[in-house]
Amino acid sequence: MNWVPLNSKRIRAVSYDPETQVLHAKFAGGRAVRHAGVLPHIYDNLIETSDPEFYYKYYLEPLRIQAGWRQKASLSSHTVKLLIFFIGALVITATALEENGELPIHLSEIAKSGTIAPTSGEKSAVSPQ
């Protein structure tokens, strides 16, 4: 296997077999990665580019993702989603408050009549029976 050094701090060298279309990449720290199905022009562009890390990130890293594979959501991602939900609920509640800090629908009016009474200045759309 012939390794071609790259002008990169992260990716040290790459090797390519055009018959099998397999590319091997060595990273700083000794980690190596194998990519299958790499077309020859992608390898040529990788070794000729002035920014191999950028090219690798956008043209080769996506090839490592298998079809139908999904990463499990971490606890922190669930926490962020829950936090966004609560902030949204608070914003909706805050926008529903009147200027004096009260909700436009008064719970005491609902409890007395069983229906929502119109607020001041509004006419009832449904007449009570």
Rank of each mutant, 00 (worst) to 15 (best):
residue 102 E to V: 06
residue 22 V to I: 14
residue 117 A to P: 03
residue 76 S to D: 15
residue 43 Y to L: 02
residue 38 V to Q: 10
residue 65 I to H: 05
residue 32 A to E: 08
residue 114 G to E: 09
residue 107 L to V: 05
residue 66 Q to L: 10
residue 98 E to N: 11
residue 13 A to S: 14
residue 34 R to N: 11
residue 93 T to N: 11
residue 39 L to E: 15
residue 21 Q to E: 15
residue 92 I to A: 13
residue 92 I to G: 06
residue 32 A to F: 00
residue 127 S to H: 10
residue 6 L to M: 05
residue 40 P to V: 07
residue 126 V to N: 12
residue 117 A to I: 10
residue 48 E to D: 08
residue 98 E to G: 01
residue 29 G to V: 01
residue 52 P to C: 02
residue 15 S to A: 15
residue 73 A to C: 00
residue 42 I to Y: 09
residue 27 F to I: 05
residue 13 A to E: 09
residue 12 R to V: 15
residue 32 A to T: 11
residue 2 N to V: 08
residue 106 H to W: 08
residue 1 M to E: 07
residue 125 A to T: 05
residue 126 V to Y: 15
residue 74 S to H: 04
residue 9 K to D: 09
residue 124 S to R: 15
residue 40 P to T: 03
residue 59 Y to C: 04
residue 2 N to P: 03
residue 26 K to T: 04
residue 51 D to V: 08
residue 20 T to Q: 09
residue 117 A to C: 05
residue 81 K to F: 00
residue 24 H to F: 12
residue 15 S to F: 04
residue 88 G to E: 10
residue 79 T to M: 06
residue 117 A to L: 13
residue 12 R to Y: 01
residue 64 R to P: 00
residue 8 S to Y: 01
residue 42 I to G: 01
residue 56 Y to P: 01
residue 32 A to I: 03
residue 107 L to C: 01
residue 91 V to P: 00
residue 66 Q to W: 00
residue 29 G to L: 04
residue 33 V to K: 13
residue 6 L to F: 06
residue 10 R to V: 06
residue 76 S to W: 06
residue 82 L to Q: 10
residue 4 V to T: 15
residue 61 E to L: 12
residue 41 H to G: 01
residue 69 W to Q: 11
residue 108 S to A: 11
residue 27 F to P: 00
residue 92 I to V: 15
residue 95 T to K: 03
residue 13 A to P: 01
residue 32 A to Q: 12
residue 46 L to F: 11
residue 11 I to H: 11
residue 7 N to Q: 14
residue 49 T to H: 06
residue 56 Y to R: 03
residue 89 A to W: 08
residue 68 G to Q: 00
residue 120 S to N: 14
residue 25 A to W: 04
residue 84 I to E: 14
residue 77 S to T: 15
residue 92 I to R: 04
residue 80 V to F: 09
residue 23 L to C: 09
residue 110 I to N: 01
residue 4 V to M: 07
residue 14 V to C: 13
residue 128 P to Q: 13
residue 105 I to L: 11
residue 81 K to R: 09
residue 31 R to Q: 12
residue 51 D to T: 10
residue 37 G to T: 10
residue 85 F to K: 13
residue 7 N to R: 10
residue 43 Y to P: 02
residue 96 A to H: 13
residue 93 T to E: 15
residue 93 T to Q: 11
residue 62 P to C: 00
residue 57 K to V: 08
residue 11 I to G: 03
residue 51 D to A: 05
residue 42 I to F: 08
residue 73 A to Q: 06
residue 28 A to V: 06
residue 70 R to N: 02
residue 87 I to G: 08
residue 21 Q to R: 15
residue 22 V to A: 07
residue 45 N to S: 12
residue 29 G to R: 09
residue 106 H to E: 04
residue 25 A to P: 05
residue 124 S to D: 07
residue 112 K to R: 13
residue 35 H to I: 13
residue 53 E to V: 13
residue 28 A to N: 07
residue 14 V to G: 07
residue 17 D to I: 02
residue 18 P to Q: 04
residue 113 S to M: 02
residue 61 E to M: 11
residue 10 R to A: 04
residue 80 V to P: 00
residue 95 T to A: 14
residue 71 Q to S: 09
residue 35 H to S: 07
residue 119 T to R: 12
residue 55 Y to G: 07
residue 96 A to C: 15
residue 71 Q to G: 06
residue 55 Y to L: 09
residue 72 K to H: 07
residue 63 L to R: 12
residue 32 A to V: 06
residue 119 T to Q: 14
